[in-house]
């Protein structure tokens, strides 16, 4: 059983789209996605520096477009036959997942996520907030420490990895008094994503989503909200809005993937993080981090074999 997953922000590196532009048709697709996003995604994915592509208003449509062009290289037109895999996205990856599953058209997903990115960048400028990775430690102690400092566990990534979100003051307080045995690592994000601090962004996303007519997913599709399979397109879209201020339960998603008997996990670009987590949370599965067109070719072979 195959799973195809789209990563969240953090793994994008300068020039990560460059190898993909050599594949016929990709430039045209990126130009279309650039129209949808209102940004020059080609330049951003090839020439822009690390700081520029770290800006969440840029990163979100850029990552979504990257995942979609890679998926198109592997599977062809996403409006063609349904992808024979379980589909899931981590955080912003849920927008690419929406298009992979046929809930939204690819251009719609990019336009919608561009609005999410702009709105979250603006919400991040209201109060100084941020996120911090908490690695290891006793899970109950970590949870208690977050609560004590008024922080939210914004991401549950499994494998002992929790991402805390809150004001910079609260994060500093946690760093001064870390839970026993846990190592803390600040994340280079503009704000406390997946916490109530992003409420203004959720409202804007809700407004942008209002006129969309989602289709029901054509593939099994997981939700970050609780790791369950969502069979209604309207429900998935509603959850995309809710998730702006709600924790990412990637741990629950991984549990569901295990329960479904997933044996192979394919991560779209910028790949690595989810394959890394799966090595520990989903032992016995094989991970494929798709970073280049050559990786895409290898994955296409995989699917050809599995669907026979």
């Amino acid at each position: 059983m195959l799973a195809i997953v789209a990563p969240g922000q953090g793994a994008q590196t300068p020039g990560f789209l460059t190898p993909w532009l050599e594949v016929p048709g990709v430039r045209r697709r990126l130009a279309a996605y650039s129209e949808s996003a209102g940004l020059d995604l080609i330049t951003l994915g090839t020439d822009a520096d690390a700081e520029t592509i770290r800006d969440t208003a840029v990163a979100q449509p850029l990552l979504t477009a990257a995942a979609l062009v890679a998926a198109e290289v592997i599977f062809g037109d996403l409006a063609g036959p349904a992808i024979p895999a379980v589909v899931a996205g981590h955080s912003v990856g849920e927008f690419a997942a929406a298009a992979l599953a046929g809930v939204l058209r690819p251009e719609e997903a990019v336009a919608l996520v561009a609005e999410r990115g702009r709105a979250m960048a603006e919400a991040s400028a209201v109060t100084p907030t941020g996120m911090l990775a908490v690695l290891g430690g006793d899970p109950d102690e970590v949870a208690a420490a977050l609560e004590r400092h008024g922080l939210v566990a914004a991401n549950h990534n499994g494998a002992g990895q929790v991402i805390a979100g809150g004001t910079t003051g609260q994060l500093d307080a946690l760093r001064a008094a870390p839970p026993a045995g846990a190592r803390l690592r600040p994340l280079a994000v503009a704000g406390a994503f997946h916490t109530p601090h992003m409420a203004p962004a959720a409202e804007r996303l809700a407004a942008a989503a209002r006129d969309l007519r989602p289709e029901d997913p054509r593939t099994p599709l997981l939700s970050n909200h609780d790791g369950t399979l969502v069979t209604s397109g309207a429900e998935y879209l509603r959850r995309l809005v809710v998730q702006v201020t709600s924790p990412v339960r990637w741990d629950a998603c991984q549990d569901t993937l295990a329960g479904l008997g997933v044996t192979t996990l394919v991560e779209l670009p910028p790949a690595g993080t989810l394959v890394n987590l799966a090595r520990r949370a989903l032992p016995g599965t094989t991970g494929h981090a798709v970073k280049t067109p050559a990786d895409a070719g290898a994955v296409r072979e995989l699917f050809a074999v599995e669907t026979v």
């Binding site: 793994a11 990775a133 190592r183 690595g272 993080t273 890394n276 991970g287």
Partner: peptide, 26 residues
């Protein structure tokens, strides 16, 4: 990280070659 030992040679880069992200490096 569960990366098999035979894949780990000295010249390999954590992120690009081994899919070991910055949090795992910590």
């Amino acid at each position: 990280t569960a990366v098999p030992t035979e894949q780990v040679s000295p010249e390999k880069r954590f992120l690009e070659d081994l899919d070991v992200d910055s949090l795992s490096v910590v």
